[in-house]
Design a protein around this nucleic acid. Sequence first.
DNA 1: AAGTTAGCCAACCGCCACCGC
DNA 2: TGCGGTGGCGGTTGGCTAACT
Length: 248
Amino acid sequence: MTNETNAAAMQVESMRKGPWHEDEDERLITFVKLLGSRRWDYVARVSGLKRSGKSCRLRWVNYLRPNLKHSHISAEEEMIILKLHEKWGNKWSMIARRLPGRTDNEIKNYWRTHLRKKAVTQDQEKFRFREDDHGKQIFLFQGDDSNSYFKTYNGESYNPCVEISDTKNISYTAAATAAVSDYNLTFTSTSPYETRISDWISSEFQNDQSEIKSQEEYDTTHSCYCYPAWFTEENDLWGCSDSLWNME
DNA sequence: AAGTTAGCCAACCGCCACCGC
DNA sequence: TGCGGTGGCGGTTGGCTAACT
């Protein structure tokens, strides 16, 4: 190891982590006022704080920045968060920009602890498993025109079920070709069975960009049945793949 | 009163995009 | 044009505390 890399390693090792002390906060505030809130690596070095630039930025953005609200999130703000999350998904920074004085971290935490349950409960009414004519379990997305299950993908709104239902020619839309990893987010845990499937898919297809394709017909009530592309007779999820049922 | 569980939130981590060299 | 540094973002973790048994 060279002297330089050695010094760098020692510097990383001597970096402080964990909660910030009051005197660290004061020092950071002082130096941000002097140097501005942009060059965080520089701020970290010059201030003598044994923190990384990233850590300094995070502390400033989430806690020390002026005009931050430290009060509880109001009902009105909650409503906005719900609306914007429905529209944009987990775009916390975008949502935060619409809520002055709130940080993306705060909104993200609030969503996870307060609002996700509400959203899941609502979603459970739209998403179900059920059996087809051959007794095979399938996804069912209810696809009426006003209330589709997937409202956004990459920030764009769409109605996947209607899209699929309308495509006799199977020209797959962005909606119908969403990656499995995106679908993972939509699984709800209403039963141990569904939880297990959700967990299994998460582990098996974490980075899988397999497309979900509509492989079967749809019924006249405007619902559609969607089998994932990786769903085959050989790889039969519902037919008890070993890894599904043996997982911890 | 002590142990356990659940909720909350600050902070960290890893990835990615952007920018300057 | 490629590479390294940096900042921004979303996901995750860990510690603290309150509630529960």
